[in-house]
Design a protein around this nucleic acid. Structure first.
Lengths: 274, 274
DNA sequence: CAAATAGTGTCTCTAAGACAATATCAC
DNA sequence: GTGATATTGTCTTAGAGACACTATTTG
């Protein structure tokens, strides 16, 4: 067995023990609530896509869309494919969140999951018909940190309410991981994946990185600000937001008219900041 | 097949096509060069551990330590185990860098790799005997970005010199990924993994997160500053570094004496910043 | 004392936060 | 005009960068 060619011809990958590999995707979007007055700007809500499991294990519980990695595709392509199969929309972007490989996390056996967060523009979601009978639903996200350091994740959709309590694990690096303390209604370790995805999403939004993908190509600065505020769960003064975002956006000549107040200029993302 | 128990008893995980899963670990340490004068402080070098492959594929080329995920361990444990097998040292910390799953990346077949960066305290490396005949060697790292945006990675160890040129891929998020343009001497896609690991390491060092793990429990502020400067490839004024690091460290009562100049106070990392 | 590093004080400048003021539309 | 948002200007303050200066040790 001298040459690489000879080695490879005798190599039997099946001889080795190996796990199944899945991707799970936390797909986020922002829904613009109906305006309460003709001239008032609408409110935003952060939404997460969940699937009601029709099969064992965790039958009838809610889970992140995901599936097994197929031969010939990368893990990113697998994540994109899963979202597209579920929503018929191709996400604007996809971001790795972590690898979940704790033995016993899946009762079917040795299965590790590559978790991703993805962002779907609110425009796209609005365009597709959203039949309520389907097993896929968009849940409103609430994710807060209590005084005791315990994080509370609440997902609501009409009458359905899923709750989980998590502890942030001490990591020596900037990414945070979470341990599930309480969990109701979410399958597998998906509560921990969702918490990690939200944490990563907030970190990105803080650097003005992920927020553009929630909006169409052109947008008003107020809309962009609302996106960031919705994700980060904070409020900023418009004057300061405009100053901070200015290096990431560029003007267009378009304006939004007919809103009952001064028309807002449309901006687009600048290709090269600075 | 009504209950979950029944479902699981009939589930055959072997029926499904699945990849082999490996971890590859970029293990970094910092070596303190011998001082040129009795009173001058020593210089630092960033080192990366590479293994000369004794077997196909990529026989005789240099590669990151790594290996196949074993049943019953998490991916993190696998990465820690691989480093420990190779160096006999358990890293202070380990950080996910990315998943490399491009079809064809491994000629043996469908093999995906979870890449990690890990930091090994320079103290530990110094303590262990480093037999030069071994297949594992610490390479000096140089990673710079040219004016054309092409990144140059150079790894040197005595007479061995490995070089690669990479392009930073446009990601919509803060983590950067790299595409290999030229490569000499590095196995698989490890040049891209190393570049991604260095990029992640620099991002962490910029937030004062990863630098402590290169040093022993207590350290001088100058040593800490040199670590950061070595990783980030920049220099800062001592006064400013001290101000910025002050919230992350706390004083001890110990001093380093006998250095031919004013003794330096030893500090330790503060558990809770702020 | 000379050489070298350890450590402090402070000036400047930039950027973030707060807030006031003006602009512009639909009704 | 009224109510709402859009947009700009500026005062204040916190923090980063630059630099001067003092402190302390060994040979």
């Amino acid at each position: 067995m001298d040459t690489e060619k000879e080695f490879l011809s005798e190599y039997r990958i099946e001889d080795y023990d190996r796990p199944s590999v899945t991707t799970d995707v936390a797909a986020f979007t922002i829904r613009t609530e109906d305006r309460t007055s003709y001239r008032k700007n609408p409110e935003n809500k952060l939404l997460l896509l969940l699937i009601r499991r029709g099969r064992h294990p965790f039958k009838d519980m809610w889970a992140l869309p995901g599936g097994f990695l197929q031969r010939g595709e990368t893990v990113e392509e697998c994540a994109l494919r899963e979202i597209q199969e579920e929503t018929n929309i191709r996400p604007a972007s996809i971001m790795p969140v972590g690898i979940f490989s704790q033995p016993g996390r899946d009762p079917r056996g040795w299965i590790i999951s590559n978790a991703y967060a993805s962002i779907i523009s609110g425009e796209s979601v609005r365009q597709k018909a959203n039949d309520d009978a389907a097993d896929a639903q968009w849940f409103t996200v609430s994710f807060t940190c209590g005084a005791d350091g315990r994080h509370h994740l609440t997902l609501t959709c009409n009458d359905i309410r899923l709750e989980a309590v998590l502890a942030a694990e001490a990591t020596r690096f900037s990414r945070t991981s979470f341990r599930i303390l309480e969990n109701s209604g979410l399958a597998f370790d998906h509560a921990a994946i969702i918490a990690a995805a939200l944490s990563a999403l907030r970190a990105e939004a803080g650097r003005f990185a992920a927020i553009f993908d929630f909006l169409p190509e052109t947008f008003t600065l107020t809309a962009l600000q609302k996106v960031q505020e919705t994700i980060m769960n904070v409020t900023v003064l418009p004057a300061n937001f405009r100053r901070m975002i200015s290096r990431y956006v560029e003007e267009t000549d378009e304006f939004v008219r007919g809103e009952g107040h001064r028309p807002a200029r449309l901006y687009r993302r600048k290709r090269t900041p600075e």
